[in-house]
C-alpha cells in the first residue's frame, strides 16, 4: 500500500476511535493534507468528518495545508516510528513536512490533529 492508500482509510480509522471523536468535537474547518504528491481535502463540521476527497479539487478553499513527503508519512506511520520521524513537528523540523495557511484552527486543536494524522499507524499495528 502506498502512503496515500493508507491515508485513504482515515474515515474508517477515525470512526473507530470514539475518544478522538470526543476530543475533536469542536472542529469546524476545511483543510488539505498532502501525502506525497496526492492532496486530500477534509471538511469537519461540529467534529464530524463530513467530506473526505482524494485527489486535486479545482479551487477548493482550505484554511490550512499540511504537506509531507511519502518518506515522511511512511516513517511516521510505522508501528514504532524511529526518532526524528515520530511527531508532526519532528517532520517539519527536518524539512520532510510543512504547515501552510491559517494555522489557528490547527493550533486550537493541535493534539487532535496530531493524533488524526498518526491514525494510519494503526494499520501497521494491525498487520
Amino acid at each position: 500500500m502506498t502512503p496515500a492508500d493508507c491515508f485513504a482509510k482515515l474515515p474508517d480509522l477515525l470512526s473507530d476511535d470514539a475518544d478522538l471523536l470526543r476530543r475533536g468535537r469542536w472542529l469546524n474547518v476545511e483543510c488539505r493534507i498532502d501525502i506525497g504528491t496526492e492532496p486530500f481535502h477534509l471538511t469537519f463540521k461540529d467534529g464530524a468528518l463530513v467530506s473526505f476527497d482524494r485527489g486535486p479539487r479545482l479551487m477548493r478553499s482550505t484554511a490550512f495545508t499540511v504537506r509531507g513527503s511519502d518518506e515522511a508519512w511512511r516513517h511516521h506511520w510505522q508501528k514504532m516510528p524511529p526518532p526524528g520521524w515520530h511527531d508532526l513537528f519532528a517532520l517539519t523540523k527536518r524539512g520532510a513536512a510543512s504547515l501552510e495557511g491559517d494555522l489557528r484552527p490547527l493550533l486550537q486543536n493541535l493534539q487532535v490533529f496530531k493524533d488524526l494524522l498518526a491514525l494510519p499507524r494503526r494499520l501497521a499495528e494491525a498487520s
Binding site: 511527531d87 489557528r104 493541535l110
Partner: peptide
Amino acid sequence: PDVHGGEVCAALISGLIAPQ
C-alpha cells in the same frame, strides 16, 4: 486569547515524548 495556552503547550511538547 484565541488558543488555550495549557492545551497548546501540552500538544506541542507531546511529540518530544518517546513513543515507547
